[in-house]
Write a protein that binds this DNA or RNA. Structure first.
Length: 614
RNA sequence: GGCUCCGUAGCUUAAUUGGAUAGAGCACCUGACUACGGAUCAGGAGGUUCCAGGUUCGAAUCCUGGCGGAGUCACCA
């Protein structure tokens, strides 16, 4: 039993003994004592006033006295305004530290027998990854690590949107203008290479469209269809989709290509395979740089026809209904949603059809209890509908579905817009933070003793820590403003700040770590700062559990920062290797190792590596 | 317009899920040990937690009503 439960139990017994009332653990409000007061844990006495019919201060006094008597680890107490502050004995903290400081699995929970699938990234294959994907990937990765640490067996997957009109545009542009070029011949990463043809297609289409706008038929359409006072520019902007679908030669060719793909025409398929292969090489490279990997990839080209059986089954059960035109719908108004189309009148499927089928397939593949979808918040409604439908279909995993929704990433200048060229490319961004880290490292000249390769590795670790921490520390649901200048900061509330605390410990240990640390058992009178850190470390396992429950890694990031900060302060205020006594020295070495250990674990859950020197 | 989410210092954000004097970082100003790594530490200044009510011993947090922003309401994905 941990100390928090012990205290809660103590309070429950105390209330019974002192006032004869029965309460449950939930009614005991408890938290770590704020650092401006003396104590380790605080029990709030206000809720008991009704039960005890006494003033909170008096209750706190009586309860404090009881707890000191009955709970071994509690040594003393003080009461301030109805808050009962409890101090644990030095012996308790010493024992705790001695037990955990070299336990590298500290904080991890035993397997809970449950399986969870986390889907993240899920890119389109017509262009490279950008900043939005980075947030998605980091959230997905860290959440999956946290769930692992919380005891789940985790499967990481992505759905690759490898088919459709978008990739056909790239294919067509390459076919028409590429002259057989390859990423190798162009000296370019495959995903960028293919993305360039997508952009080229859009450019050619725009040229074609502009020219068309001057022709007689276009003038006529404008005259007839434009609304009163609508400018020519505004009209044609709105008309673009229609133009693409009904008038454009390039549009017709792209659509023709999609039809050929669906018909399985050999030449088209092989071109499609070639272009996608290039893209995957590029993606793999970016994933490698980000340090993430997947257990399985689902390709939309395999799954886009799934789900129709489920629709039929739902029709038979009366969950769905058919309109006269043959389209199939589900009414979700009683769940606060709307009516939703699940099958077109021509019998083809829509996005949600495919998602239903894919969910079922995943369950067949892995038998998971939970599925987490990391997808931006613009799809909130879609997932509400999807989950509701799966529930009505009676899927066994329906209660374990979770949409990890996150806010879109904006720049200080506003939204990212591909048309305006303001999209922050993932590879460019990574290169930028690496450059920044390199410049700083060279200036400090702290690792020039390492080999060139080792130096590069450290620089990469620092850079990625800056970028990842900057993104993960923000709660997922908040939309975030990403200032590239701040993301490469290496000081203050940043990843490198946390790394630095770890590096400091390593430095101390190199100079005096191999000694016998058993004298730590004789250390008396712990410093408040020492207790503060131990208290934080003590809370770490619970924090992992909470982060897993809430699907929110930001708390872990903030915890790591707080712990690093506490250590930096302690390091400044107290000597470790030159501590006043051998006991203090041994204790502080243990504590340093404990802090480093927990920082390493915590950052690792976020996908952030810790260098030994920096 | 309906629904959902967000609104905290100039900027980026936290607050143990209803607890004590709202805590950090950046930027700005001032300092720090002849010592274990200065990517550090300390101090200063900066707040009507969007506004108005309500519930409560206690509200940034919950409820109601506004204001502002974002997203979504396709036989698109």
């Amino acid at each position: 039993m941990n100390i928090i439960e012990s205290i809660q139990n103590g309070v429950i017994k105390g209330i019974k003994a002192l006032y004869g009332a029965d309460i449950v653990a939930d009614q005991v409000t408890m938290n770590s004592t704020r650092k401006e007061f003396e104590g380790d844990y605080t029990v709030v006495a206000f809720p008991f006033t009704r039960i005890a019919r006494k003033k909170p201060g008096q209750i706190a006094e009586e309860l404090g006295e009881y707890l000191v008597r009955e709970v071994e680890a509690i040594e003393s107490y003080n009461v301030i305004k109805g808050f009962l502050n409890l101090s644990l004995s030095d012996a308790f903290w010493r024992a705790f530290l001695g037990e955990m400081y070299q336990d590298e699995a500290y904080g991890k929970h035993a397997p809970n027998g449950q399986k969870v699938m986390v889907e993240f990234s899920s890119p389109n294959t017509n262009k490279p990854l950008h900043l939005g994907h980075i947030r998605n990937i980091l959230l997905g990765w860290s959440t999956s690590r946290i769930m692992e640490a919380a005891g789940y067996e985790v499967f990481r997957v992505q759905v690759v949107n490898d088919r459709g009109i978008a990739i056909c545009k790239s294919m067509l542009a390459w076919q028409k203008y590429g002259q057989g070029a390859t990423p190798e011949s162009a000296g370019e990463k495959g995903d960028h290479f293919v993305g360039d043809y997508y952009v080229l297609f859009e450019k050619k289409l725009q040229e074609e469209y502009k020219a068309w706008q001057q022709t007689g038929p276009a003038r006529e359409i404008f005259e007839q269809q434009s609304e009163n006072g609508q400018s020519e520019e505004a009209f044609f902007k709105a008309f673009k989709n229609t133009y693409f679908n009904e008038y454009s030669r390039l549009g017709a060719e792209a659509k023709e290509m999609l039809l050929q793909w669906e018909a399985g025409k050999e030449e088209t398929i092989s071109l499609w395979k070639q272009m996608n292969a290039w893209v995957y090489q590029g993606f793999d490279e970016t994933y490698r740089r980000l340090g993430v990997e997947f257990d399985k990839l689902y390709f939309e080209s395999d799954t886009y026809l799934l789900g129709k059986d489920a629709i039929q089954k739902g029709l038979d059960n009366g969950i769905f209904y058919k309109k006269e035109d043959g389209s199939v719908w589900i009414g979700l108004t009683d769940a606060g949603l709307d009516h939703k189309l699940v099958l077109r009148s021509d019998g083809t499927s829509v996005y949600i059809t495919q998602d239903i089928g894919t969910a079922q397939k995943r369950y067949q593949d892995f038998g998971v209890d939970k599925m987490v979808y990391v997808v931006a918040d613009e799809q909130n409604y879609h997932f509400q509908a999807l989950f509701e439908i799966l529930k009505r279909l009676g899927e066994p995993y329906a209660d374990g579905l979770y949409h990890l929704s996150y806010g879109m990433v904006n720049l200080p200048t506003g939204k990212m817009k591909s048309r305006e060229g303001t999209v922050v490319d993932a590879d460019d961004l990574i290169a930028e933070v690496v450059e920044e880290a390199r410049a700083n490292t060279v200036e400090r000249d702290t690792i020039s003793g390492l080999t060139k390769e080792q130096q590069e590795e450290v620089i990469r670790q620092i850079a990625m820590a800056a970028l990842k921490f900057f993104i993960i520390k923000v709660q997922p649901r908040k939309r975030m403003v990403f200032d590239p200048k701040e993301s490469v900061d290496l000081q203050g509330q940043t990843g490198p700040y946390v790394q630095n605390a770890y590096v400091r410990v390593q430095s101390v240990l190199r100079k005096g770590g191999e000694q016998d640390l058993s004298p730590a058992a004789g250390y008396r009178k712990l410093e408040p700062q020492e207790k503060e850190m131990l208290n934080m470390i003590y809370s770490f396992p619970g924090l992992i559990q909470l982060a897993a429950q809430e699907y929110d890694p930001s708390g872990i990031a903030n915890f790591c920062y707080d712990l690093a900060k506490a250590y930096h302060r302690f390091y400044h205020d107290h000597s470790i290797l030159n501590a006043p006594t051998a006991e203090a020295r041994a204790f502080r070495l243990q504590l340093s190792r404990a802090v480093a250990n927990v920082l390493h674990q915590g950052m690792n859950l976020l996908g952030i590596e810790m260098p030994e020197r920096m």
